[in-house]
Amino acid sequence: MEVKELVRAIDIKAAYTLLNESKGSKVMAGGAWMKLSVKSVDKLILLDDLDLDYIKEENEFLEIGAMTSLRTIEMHPAIKSLSSGILTKAIKSIMGVQVRNVATIGGSVMGRFAFSDILGALLVLDCQLCFHGLHEISVFDFLQMPKVPSDILLSIKIKKSSEKGYFHKVSKTHLDFSLLNIAITKNELFKIAIGSRPQTATLAINTANFLNSQSEINEDTVKKAVEIACDEIKVSTNLRASKEYREVLLKTYLTRGLLEVIK
């Protein structure tokens, strides 16, 4: 990666201004993926001095600073108890400890990686992204934006919940990207996200609506819900798996996941 200039931002405002000054500016979070995906940067902005590496526990919320490493998040006890620990599970399945020590939650969100395991988990948790310019926005709305906003992500706020959750990733080896991942939470309402389809994670809204409209959830309603999901969620073929095989994975693990959360 070619870097013409490296700037350590002195405060968030400065970082925001630098980023929006010219098209050739980029923020570096952990940097591991950037090395592989970016050829040249005019101005590389570092957020290392902005104290964005923290996990704060409030009464209702957990707030994770954008520059917090995945490893720190995965080891945090409060995160482990969020919805059966689905965020911990999603993070633990990413690469090795070395990478998770440098990769940050901010980078994982802003990259909007198609293969991301984290985005699915965040989609089904009750959480907001806190930006410098945009202020608060849901993960779902963030993923709907046609382009990644030219903004500085400051933190992620997650509503505390001991609701039941399910996360499952299918991959060929323990260091591989997902062929598919599924995240489910059930509080009063169901939320279901499917990722690495191979497109970026998305919510199965119709499926969740169907389940949420049922007075009782049993094996039959789960079966029906899975049918709706297979219709609703588009999967396709890439190097790692075919569309047809992804459909099997979706059907199988959505069924298993739903049965687990209603247990």
């Binding site: 592989l36 060929k172 080896t173 323990h174 260091l175 591989d176 990207f177 190097l239």
Partner: peptide, 16 residues
């Protein structure tokens, strides 16, 4: 050759 790096060519890990 598309499987030309270790992200796309997967050898067994110690968990596999």
């Amino acid at each position: 050759l598309i499987s030309s790096d270790m992200l796309n060519y997967k050898i067994p890990t110690r968990l596999d």
